[in-house]
Design a protein around this nucleic acid. Structure first.
Lengths: 176, 176
DNA sequence: ACGAAACCTGACACTATTGTCAAGTATTAC
DNA sequence: GTAATACTTGACAATAGTGTCAGGTTTCGT
């Protein structure tokens, strides 16, 4: 159970776009240079985001990629979902049955509720956090996260589609 | 970010040992049959646990594996840790720097605090949950997890080494 | 002592993930 | 219209994770 490289790198790349702002296209070349990744790899990651509808491409000599929604409106869960399978499959018991027809624990599986709680906790945090949050100074992000650590994370608050940014708009200060 | 097969299968196997009780050895053959896995694979998983000091082997014709501590004293975190890298490396920024010497976000990384919060939340749940908890009836485990969902998961309560079981000892009812 | 049952180990095949490469298409500047 | 820049795509190589195999050692029952 660890975050994949795709997730880490993909998040870094889309944060570069978030830093630039909604309308401004950033080229793959620039992002690759910033993050120390190959241009081809960055392309692969960004294409995933484009297909997920998070960003769009601008072709031609001054082209690049840019966000389709503002950083406040893109949640971490939106970013991580298209980057690959997430946490645990809807019904893990049907995916990991070993060689048996049905999982031997079916009808009395103490594992499932635990994975479910973990998934709920993780999703709650991912749904609460936006790209704008992550553009703040590290200390500020730490404080924001700390304040969330004291809130119960299990009661899956439904994610608002266009939320008022839950945090003061300090994001811009990190852009410069 | 998903749980690995090793984690899922490993947990299932050690739960079989927990179900049997501390002193009673269960053979690889039995576990393999129960879980629908190959005996060789089960062996591999159990050897990992043995090397981590969680279980011990009994050789000879009536041999097998058994828990070294009671199910109440083994936390989910103890089980998952030896099964592989966990969640995120101590300093992820030094492990995923792309090709650059230092991560381009160093000195102002908004990602780190988020991963850190997730790790704290996950570890808190894993440290609270014992194998005994997972031996209860599924409905009961669900209720236990639900009660924990409403508790803040961020304030990493230090895991006691020999904790009084935080849950009523209903575990035995599931053993039969 | 012998053989059966069961653990022990390292090497290996298989598979999924990561990351690269090459050939292509679209757009802009001149 | 031509060249330069940049996105698009699919195939491939490298690596890590998953699961199997074969040959060995230990213990117990007879």
């Amino acid at each position: 159970m660890k975050i994949s490289k795709q997730e880490e790198y993909g998040l870094r790349c889309i944060l570069q776009l978030a830093r630039a702002g909604v309308g401004r296209a950033v080229s793959v070349r620039e992002i690759a240079a910033q993050e120390g990744l190959s241009a081809d790899y960055v392309t692969k990651l960004l294409v995933t985001f484009r297909r997920a509808g998070l960003i769009e491409s601008v072709r031609g000599i001054n082209g690049g990629y840019c966000l389709r929604r503002s950083a406040e409106q893109i949640h971490l869960s939106d970013v991580l979902r298209p980057l690959g399978g997430f946490f645990y499959p809807k019904d893990l018991c049907s995916e990991y049955p070993g060689k048996l027809e049905a999982c031997s624990h079916v009808g009395g599986c103490g594992i499932r509720p635990v994975w479910a709680l973990l998934a709920r906790q993780i999703y709650t945090t991912l749904n609460r956090t936006t790209l704008a949050d992550m553009l703040m100074e590290e200390k500020e992000v730490e404080q924001l996260m700390a304040s969330r650590a004291s809130q119960p994370a299990g009661s899956a608050a439904p994610r608002p589609q266009v939320p008022a940014s839950p945090t003061p708009a300090v994001a811009a200060s990190a852009a410069g």
